[in-house]
Amino acid sequence: MQEQETSKGKKEINGFLPFYTNAFDRVFIGVVILIGIHLLWLRFMEPALPIEAATVISLVIGYIVVRRG
């Protein structure tokens, strides 16, 4: 594979994730986590707390991933 050539304006950053990511990657990871948390929530947590809690949690995680991943 060739060297990662980043296109203008989009920097690949070296955050806490174990690989280099660009903005799209981080949004993607955010969405993946969002869906995953919701599914797990529906299965295990819903009797205790409503699904909106999952949304809040995953939005927070998503924000962290997008900003600092």
Binding site: M1, E3, Q4, N14, P18, F19, Y20, T21
Partner: peptide
């Protein structure tokens, strides 16, 4: 894994 974007990997 394929695109070798892992950190610390020497390309």
């Amino acid at each position: 894994a394929i695109s070798g974007r892992r950190k610390g990997e020497v390309e």
